[in-house]
């Protein structure tokens, strides 16, 4: 790995394995993601894709191997530490803060950008008021960015599934991430919504300079969006490369694409 390479690499997963009891969910996985890239991970159900996200975001600890984010080792750190270093994510089965409105969810995402401390929170002085107002405007802006500002004051539990998914992405963006992990963002969306989401993901990368890691089953989505694709099967990386190359790889066709293509 040359010096110029490390400059461009924002995330590197190095020889990572994860065990659940006797089950090896990830087996010596290595790959690197460059700044500004849209990098997708595909693979059959149970391949270990979500587990990979959980390792990278700090929810699981790898049994072996390392995860480097912005050149610093993050495996073994709490998810909150990794988040504050600039990593954000969505969840395959939504993890919204129920009982809060959409806006409050996004505000919670912006937690670390509010500068006031505990004691000033107790007093709620005009400075705190100003900061809160600004945070609210930013949160509203993020909901608008995702096209759901109309739902800002609705309780998240009452929102349609597609809107909830967007609120979750807005919440992740509110942390101000350098890397955003989206776990099956298109699942459950119709064709029109999927098209909009592809557009949104491009805008997240282009307008906000965020690097994206996606897990997705929808091939049109993956192939249309990704700079590079990584194929995972039974915890191992089968192939990696540009969408066309991966699509043509015989091992991939056999393990994964073959079964879904027909």
């Amino acid at each position: 790995m040359g010096a110029r390479d490390t400059d461009r690499t924002i995330l590197s997963v190095d020889n990572v394995s994860v065990d659940f009891g006797g089950l090896r969910a990830l087996n010596r996985c290595s790959f690197e993601v460059s700044k500004g890239e849209i990098y997708s991970i595909i693979g059959p159900n149970g391949a270990g894709k979500s587990t990979l996200f959980n390792v990278v975001s700090g929810i699981h600890r790898p049994a072996e191997g390392r995860v480097l984010f912005r050149g610093r080792r993050v495996d073994g750190l709490r998810p909150s530490r990794i988040s504050r270093m600039g990593m954000a994510r969505s969840f395959q089965n939504l993890e919204l803060f129920s009982g809060m409105t959409a806006l409050e969810n996004v505000l919670a995402g912006g937690h670390r950008h509010l500068g006031y401390g505990f004691f000033r929170g107790l007093v709620f002085d005009p400075g705190v008021r100003r900061e809160e107002r600004r945070a609210r405007e930013e949160a509203r802006g993020l909901l608008a960015f995702l096209g759901v500002e109309g739902y800002a004051n609705s309780p998240v539990d009452d929102l349609p599934y597609g809107v909830q998914k967007k609120v979750e992405i807005a919440r992740a963006l509110a942390t101000g991430p350098g890397v955003l992990l989206l776990d099956e963002p298109a699942a459950g969306l119709n064709d029109r919504e999927t098209g909009e989401l592809m557009d949104t993901i491009h805008r997240i990368r282009d307008e906000r300079g965020v690097t994206l890691l996606l897990v997705e089953h929808n091939m049109r989505f993956v192939m249309g969006l990704s700079d590079r694709v990584c194929v995972l099967s039974f915890g191992r990386i089968l192939a990696e490369g540009g969408p066309e190359r991966v699509r043509a790889d015989p091992a991939v066709v056999e393990a994964y694409l073959g079964e879904t293509a027909c």
């Binding site: 975001s57 700090g58 929810i59 709490r78 998810p79 909150s80 530490r81 988040s83 504050r84 954000a88 994510r89 969840f91 993890e95 919204l96 803060f97 129920s98 009982g99 809060m100 409050e104 505000l107 919670a108 995402g109 937690h111 670390r112 919440r171 992740a172 509110a174 942390t175």
Partner: peptide, 19 residues
């Protein structure tokens, strides 16, 4: 907000930087 977030989803709260 951080306390309520933790109550509703510990993982999600951690993943937005709430310890």
């Amino acid at each position: 907000r951080a306390l309520t977030a933790l109550r509703e989803s510990g993982v999600a709260a951690e993943c937005v930087g709430i310890s």
